[in-house]
Amino acid sequence: MSHTAHIRSHRKPRRSASSLAMRAGVAGGVLSTLAVAGASGSANAAEPVTQTLELPTLTADLAAQAAQSADATQQAAANYQLQAERDAAAAKAAKQAKADLAEAKQKAAAAKKKAEEEAARKAAAARASRNAERTTLAATTGSGVSTSGSTATGSAAAVVAFVKAQIGKAYVSGATGPSAYDCSGLVQTAFKQVGISLPRVSQDQSTAGTQVSLSNLQPGDILYWGGAGSAYHVAVYVGDGMFVGAQNPSSGVGEHPLSYDPPSGAVRVL
């Protein structure tokens, strides 16, 4: 025995049986609980549990909305692409139209220039021809006498006498006598005196007979101004380089030398 065993304050107090029993009970309960948990864990480990999760209905709606949004985006992109292609085609067409218009304008300008040059050439040729005719006429009538003589006979004499008798009468457009005439009205009425029916207007009278040279005129020949078939004035050659015609409202019917207003040509119907 320890030498301090008899000292009361140094001895450990004994535990009561009830206290030991309670502790043993608690320990047993804990061990039982662990045993049950272990058994449960073993059972769970041996048999895996399969669980089925159901997505909420809201998830399906979101998926549908996402799909619709994707479709809308794709359609918008397709629309933008189509519009871009249309814009590009329109721009190309506008550019081509502009080029075609410019080319058409150039061709039109070239055609107009060519036509003007051709008209100028023809006009120059016509002026040269008229000048040549007038030069010849001046040379042949310088003495006031036609190369074919100045004495009218037969029907020609009657035509010359008639037109000379009308000198001094008024010029009225459309008139055919007896107090007034226009140029073709005087010629038509004069030839009517000898039984010859002439067209009414100067254009037709300039082709009513045989074309004759101005250097070979005879009394009674019809003189015309302008082109044959498009004449704008007519008169009657009366010989000696003179003609009688209804000139205009200011001068009326009068007799003038060929140099007063040189004619373009002449026709013979007698």
Rank of each mutant, 00 (worst) to 15 (best):
D221A: 10
G185D: 09
A156S: 15
R200A: 14
E47T: 13
A99T: 15
K192N: 10
G227W: 01
S32V: 15
S215K: 03
A84M: 04
K114R: 12
Q81S: 15
Y237E: 00
A90L: 11
A46E: 10
S250Y: 00
T52L: 12
E255Q: 14
K95M: 09
L55V: 13
A84P: 05
A21H: 13
E133R: 11
G168Y: 05
G227P: 02
K192S: 15
L258R: 03
V269N: 09
K92H: 11
H233T: 06
E85C: 03
P263M: 05
E118T: 11
P13I: 15
S155V: 07
D261S: 13
F243M: 13
A108L: 12
Y260M: 00
A104F: 00
T57W: 06
Q193N: 02
R23D: 13
T153L: 11
A39S: 10
K107R: 14
G245N: 03
A67D: 04
A24K: 08
E85G: 10
A231D: 01
G29W: 08
A78V: 08
A35K: 07
P257F: 03
R14H: 15
M1W: 06
A110K: 11
N131H: 09
R11L: 10
S146A: 15
V212L: 06
Q211F: 10
D100E: 13
T210Y: 01
M22C: 05
V49Q: 13
G28F: 12
G149W: 07
S184G: 03
T210L: 04
T52N: 08
L34H: 04
A46C: 09
A111L: 08
S230E: 08
G25N: 08
I7N: 12
A208T: 12
A110V: 13
D204K: 09
L137F: 04
F162M: 08
M1K: 04
A94L: 11
G28S: 13
E54L: 11
A24F: 14
A60I: 03
A132K: 15
R121N: 07
A152Y: 09
A88R: 12
L62M: 10
V267K: 01
R23A: 12
A132H: 12
H233E: 05
G154M: 10
H256P: 01
T140D: 07
I196M: 11
T151D: 14
V194Q: 02
N79Y: 05
D71R: 15
A246N: 00
S16A: 13
A190M: 11
A102F: 01
S264G: 04
A139Q: 08
Q65C: 04
A158Y: 05
Y80D: 14
Q166T: 10
R14F: 07
I222G: 08
A77F: 03
A77P: 05
A43P: 02
I196Q: 04
S32A: 15
P13Y: 03
H233G: 02
R127W: 06
V172L: 09
S42A: 14
V159M: 06
L58Q: 10
P257Q: 06
P249R: 01
T4W: 14
Q106R: 15
A235Q: 02
A119G: 09
Q166S: 08
S129F: 06
Q81L: 06
V159D: 08
A39D: 12
Q218T: 04
